[in-house]
Write a protein that binds this DNA or RNA. Structure first.
Lengths: 191, 191
DNA sequence: CGAAAATTTGACATGACTCAACTGGAGTGG
DNA sequence: CCACTCCAGTTGAGTCATGTCAAATTTTCG
């Protein structure tokens, strides 16, 4: 179970079993069923989530009342509203399970304690955030560069694993277009 | 001059004069005039730039041959193609000066040496990238949530300092619309 | 099996782009 | 200091990608 976190951490830094146990003690475990909210608009994002099994999505509700998905997370991904988490300010996002999900999470205070007591985690999170930021920059580029249709094909190619696990209307939401338009694109594609 | 970097670093961590001198020794100084390129498509982003005075922008050229600005940097901001920098892969971006600019920069190898020899910098960059990632997440949200017109007004409110320093057509490019359309919005706004 | 949820279809609407032409101001050179 | 050029910004007409809305169809799942 927690082996997943251990493997994840050892991608960027080296921690032995003993130190890992100490690190792990800052985390808590949770099992939640499909479509449950882990975070809701107006709350403070108290914890940083690490997915062991399952799928999460982050979304907000726009002025038309539509849910806009901005992010998915599967195994070995971190999920939080980073802005709300680091500033402990209220969030505009929801975080919800797409499937039954098992995760580890760490609260803000424990996160800070962890970083103090285990400097190796400074490096770990520096690497994680550096990589996440690089990915976000690329994503912003795609949003500038691609039409909706191109975004769809790029998504298919880059993240095929989601297609099996996430319903179409959530993919449409993630790609920032209507289910109707996605439907149209798919029809065109098949021919 | 380098006081600017010192002040910046001391926002997140504490380094005394002596340690700062050691840290500074990993950086190099450069002065470049308006409209010069610091990075071009196809190159590898060898260094991470820190602006002392001036303005930088990052852009790519789309298939229609238009420059698409994705990022500005002013005093005390870092600029690089993070993806290209961390993987030392070829970039699709240009980094160009908008004004005459003075900056400090650190090459990838020196960046890694710096992190090894000065663990305090792990924390510094963890904080920097964490914040940058949070900002990128918010920016992605705005790109999902706002119409072009709303993006413009949001930009006006959030980054008024750019209006004075950056020509309109670059702002249009940054907001991902045509100069003509920006013109239309401004006309509407004045009435 | 039936109800609710997801997906598709089609008619119509619109935000934003394209292209071409015009205006005005900032340099530059004679 | 004028004339000329060049580039940024504006205007307007026409167009297209994508959205809206309503209804039909298919799938999911209790």
């Amino acid at each position: 179970m927690s082996e997943i976190l251990k493997a994840h951490i050892n991608k960027f830094v080296t921690v032995n079993d003993e130190e890992f146990e100490a690190i792990l003690s800052y985390f808590q475990f949770k099992r939640i069923s499909k479509k449950d909210n882990l975070l809701e608009e107006g709350q403070i994002c108290k914890s940083n989530l690490f997915v062991l099994h399952g799928v999460l999505r982050k979304f907000f509700i726009n002025d038309k009342g539509t849910e806009q998905t901005t992010e998915f997370a599967i195994e070995q991904w971190w999920m939080s509203d980073t802005f709300s988490f680091i500033n402990q300010s209220t969030t505009e996002f929801y975080i919800q399970t797409v499937e039954n999900t098992e995760l580890l999470y760490i609260d803000k205070v424990d996160y800070e304690k962890l970083l103090e007591t285990h400097p190796v985690m400074e490096k770990h999170f520096r690497c994680i955030y550096q990589k996440a930021y690089a990915a976000a920059q690329m994503r912003i580029k795609f949003l500038y560069d691609y039409s909706r249709e191109e975004l769809y094909y790029h998504f298919l190619k880059a993240q095929p694993e989601f297609l099996q696990r996430v319903p179409q209307y959530l993919i449409a939401s993630y790609l920032n277009f209507t289910p109707e338009y996605l439907s149209e694109i798919r029809k065109k594609g098949i021919s």
